[in-house]
Design a protein around this nucleic acid. Structure first.
Lengths: 178, 178
DNA sequence: ACCTGAACACCGTTCAAGT
DNA sequence: ACCTGAACACCGTTCAAGT
């Protein structure tokens, strides 16, 4: 990779993070390129699809969430771990519409498959909560994610912020216990 | 209202219903006008905003939902009425992305305020379920709607259809009972 | 090898000109 | 009074031409 290419990529990514923080994940790609002082073709060269760009933008946060899952798995009781991680996922989801992108991301992008990473982090927490804790056994990882995603999507449409979202999440978590 | 204006309006509405059934609520307004054989200005004259158009398109279904609520209020037990109505709302939501529009609709459009209508229908069902039934008292109508909307939004992003959505809803309803 | 930016087909929206 | 459709400023996306 040529030096100017590498520099372009980094600058595009930094610009994308800023613009997406301002305008959300639907931000105009042309504007990102414009602000980065680069032609639209250059953006497409580095990030062939919007999803590829979003994966790169959110990668850090998803990795942090996965690390947090490992940590909770090792140091917290089954039910509490699941509840705490759900809240973290919710907070991530409410920041720049991060979840819908991280969750929906189907295929590996840039050697980093957000969907699989989140799924495997959640699988451990959920299985333990179902074995040693009080979580209903007829729930799978996909159900769990859809419920948390649902609360996040609904809460992001109406005002109320994280506080309201956490209230809704507490209802959902109660449902998961039966 | 002139006869040609009235005819244009009706034809636009019918065309909009068809196009939205095909492409969802984000369908191109220009295309709706084009298919109706009318200039875009004419569509804007009759429906000044997209929300106004969507309100007209979904009005029948929202009215049906409200009538159903009245019915359940009169003829079904508190808990069952709330559960059955939730399922109806969910089914509506999964058809052409109907819910997000009906729910988010803030102000009166065409003398028909979807949001208020749905809210008042739900208020009766929820209050009764909290008084005579087993529903948690710390839930208000807005919470209830957000939770159902959340399940609908999440279920509409991933495959699985109404069946999967009903499974998720059952978890949420369990949560509403504490 | 990589960047460039004009170009294409769209979008929502407006508004002068018509009837 | 109502309709018309060209026009405007955008959008995502592509690709020949440059360096």
């Amino acid at each position: 990779m040529r030096v100017d290419a590498r520099r372009n990529r980094e600058h595009l990514l930094a610009t994308a993070k800023a613009v997406i923080a301002e305008q959300g994940p639907e931000a105009s790609l042309n504007e990102i390129a414009r602000r980065a002082g680069v032609g639209p073709g250059t953006l497409y060269r580095h990030f062939p699809t919007r999803q590829a760009l979003l994966a790169a933008v959110f990668q850090d946060r998803v990795e942090t969430l996965c690390a947090k899952a490992e940590d909770l798995l090792a140091h917290t009781s089954p039910d509490e771990a699941l509840a705490l991680w759900s809240r973290d996922v919710l907070a991530h989801a409410l920041t720049d519409g991060g979840l819908s992108t991280s969750m929906t991301l189907g295929e590996a992008e840039l050697g980093f498959d957000c969907h699989a990473a989140m799924r495997s982090a959640a699988t451990g927490l959920l299985a333990r909560a179902q074995g040693e804790g009080r979580t209903r056994p007829d729930i799978d990882v996909e159900d769990f994610f859809q419920l948390v995603t649902g609360v996040a999507l609904a809460a992001s449409e109406l005002p109320g912020g994280l506080g309201r979202a956490e209230h809704l999440l507490s209802v959902t978590l109660a449902g998961l216990r039966g």
